[in-house]
Write a protein that binds this DNA or RNA. Structure first.
Lengths: 157, 157
DNA sequence: GTCCCTGCAAACTCTTTGCAGACCG
DNA sequence: CGGTCTGCAAAGAGTTTGCAGGGAC
């Protein structure tokens, strides 16, 4: 099997085959996005990008992330906090998200049994599945520890 | 077991116990919300409300739906189309959503096996679960039929 | 040189908020 | 009457878009 292309190569070839242009901004944004390695908001990304090149505008980040999404390098996620977040998509299997409501950390996980039950549930309702999205909100291990430094409390607030 | 309270009674008692006031608008909005029986956007709801009382403002609908949510009568859903939708919540168990990407219809379903696998997955990552959200996007039976009136096509577009 | 891309600012959508007057209890 | 609510309009947040100049090929 052929070696997987690196993201920069994927972008370059996507750009080349469509008569688009390889600009400084597009590469800066790709680098910032890859180095973020998480689920970045446009805001976070813009900050990172600007530390490398202060003149890049927010509009360009929006436009470029759309381009990366079309190129299959990024995928957009809506976690209900009112802004889009992007995660790296190149060669990744479908996965779901655990979101800590305390620190905001987002963890990915995969579970084939859940996947097939989802498909079965959809089929039993006559749906042809295109995609699905599972998000579990809760408190991560670290935040649970931080919140309970002493003996257990029965704080129901 | 006691008879379940009707929504209007729940609202009245919620209002009474907090020193709030029962206004014409609040009841009109509750009625419109209940008669919608689905996953209504504020926009849809405002239209319904105005057909009963044209002077109600959008701000009041926003404020009232928040109130109904606190009272346990409604629950807010974010389906990634950029607007909040509300569904009736009184006495309903947790459930997930099947969303038709063609006609927008939203169907609810429940699956205990999925629920427990979700909980297990979260626990295995050390999360204490607060809530979760599963959305399956696809094409509903009706839209599949509508899209293929003749023999099967191999349209990959 | 051509056409794409960028930065800026204005526009847009959805939602929230400040305020003065209206209304409930 | 007092305090809550309402409608209006303005303000906000996040995102998109029109345009003129700049840059890739």
């Amino acid at each position: 099997m052929a070696r997987a292309l690196r993201p920069a190569e994927i972008l370059t070839s996507y750009i080349a085959t469509r008569g688009l242009k390889a600009t400084r901004q597009r590469h800066v944004i790709l680098e910032a996005f890859l180095s973020a390695r998480g689920h970045v908001s446009i805001d976070d990304l813009l900050a990172k990008v600007r530390s490398a090149d202060p003149r890049v505008s927010a509009a360009t980040v929006y436009r470029t992330m759309k381009l990366l999404t079309e190129a299959g390098l990024a995928s957009a996620q809506h976690f209900g906090d009112g802004q889009v977040r992007y995660e790296a998509a190149a060669g990744k299997a479908h996965h779901d998200h655990l979101i800590c409501t305390s620190c905001g950390q987002i963890t990915e996980f995969e579970d084939d049994r859940i996947e097939s039950l989802q498909d079965a549930a959809a089929r039993s309702h006559g749906f042809r599945v295109e995609r699905h999205k599972l998000e579990i909100y809760g408190v991560c291990r670290a935040c649970q520890r931080a919140a309970r430094p002493g003996p257990a409390r029965s704080d129901a607030n």
